[in-house]
Lab assay of single mutants.
Amino acid sequence: DVEPGKFYKGVVTRIEKYGAFINLNEQVRGLLRPRDMISLRAENLNVGDEIIVQAIDVRPEKREIDFKYIP
């Protein structure tokens, strides 16, 4: 289970104008929005990159997770 405030290692699987999709594993995926990329620009991300993200909002009923990148 993903808990708000905890840090996780994930892999960038898709990049859109509104953010990057980060997979923690095959069943868990969330969104890293540009406003939550402190000191990281979306254009510096590539599909396949491994990054550490913090879960900031977890909505299990919608199967949605928002992440924040903190260097």
Rank of each mutant, 00 (worst) to 15 (best):
D1R: 14
D1F: 15
V2Y: 08
V2H: 03
V2T: 03
V2E: 02
E3H: 12
E3S: 11
E3I: 15
P4S: 09
G5S: 04
G5T: 03
K6E: 07
K6P: 03
F7I: 08
F7S: 06
Y8Q: 01
Y8C: 03
G10I: 04
G10M: 05
G10E: 01
V11Q: 05
V12I: 15
V12C: 02
V12Q: 00
V12T: 01
T13C: 09
T13K: 03
T13E: 05
T13G: 04
T13F: 03
T13V: 11
R14S: 12
R14H: 08
I15V: 10
E16Q: 06
K17D: 10
K17E: 12
Y18H: 07
Y18F: 13
Y18T: 06
G19S: 04
G19I: 10
G19M: 09
G19Q: 07
A20E: 01
A20C: 08
A20W: 12
A20I: 15
A20S: 04
A20P: 01
A20K: 01
F21R: 01
F21L: 10
I22G: 00
I22F: 06
I22N: 00
N23G: 06
N23Y: 12
L24R: 00
L24M: 03
N25T: 12
N25H: 07
N25D: 08
N25V: 08
E26T: 13
E26W: 14
Q27V: 13
Q27S: 14
Q27T: 14
Q27R: 14
Q27D: 12
V28D: 05
V28I: 14
V28Y: 08
R29F: 10
R29H: 10
R29M: 14
G30D: 04
G30V: 08
L31T: 06
L31E: 04
L31Q: 04
L32D: 02
L32N: 02
L32K: 02
L32R: 02
L32H: 02
R33T: 05
R33V: 09
P34A: 13
P34V: 15
R35S: 11
R35H: 11
R35Y: 07
D36V: 06
D36S: 05
D36T: 02
D36Q: 06
I38Y: 07
I38C: 14
I38D: 12
S39I: 11
S39T: 10
S39N: 15
S39R: 13
S39L: 13
S39F: 15
S39E: 13
L40R: 05
L40C: 11
L40F: 07
R41C: 13
R41K: 15
R41A: 12
R41N: 11
A42R: 12
A42W: 15
E43W: 11
N44F: 13
N44I: 09
L45T: 01
N46P: 00
N46R: 15
V47F: 02
G48A: 01
D49G: 02
D49C: 07
E50S: 13
I51R: 00
I51V: 09
I51N: 00
I52R: 05
I52K: 03
V53M: 07
V53Q: 00
V53Y: 01
V53N: 00
V53A: 01
Q54K: 08
A55M: 06
D57M: 13
D57Q: 14
V58S: 06
V58W: 07
V58Y: 09
R59F: 04
R59Q: 04
R59Y: 05
P60M: 09
P60L: 09
P60V: 11
E61L: 08
E61K: 09
E61F: 04
E61N: 12
K62V: 10
K62I: 08
K62S: 11
R63Y: 11
R63V: 06
E64K: 06
E64V: 08
E64N: 07
E64Q: 14
E64W: 14
I65R: 03
D66L: 15
D66R: 14
F67H: 03
F67I: 04
F67L: 09
F67W: 08
K68P: 04
Y69K: 03
Y69Q: 08
Y69F: 11
Y69I: 06
Y69V: 07
Y69S: 03
Y69C: 07
I70D: 11
I70G: 05
I70H: 09
I70Q: 09
I70S: 09
I70Y: 12
P71K: 11
P71M: 12
P71H: 09
P71F: 09
P71S: 14
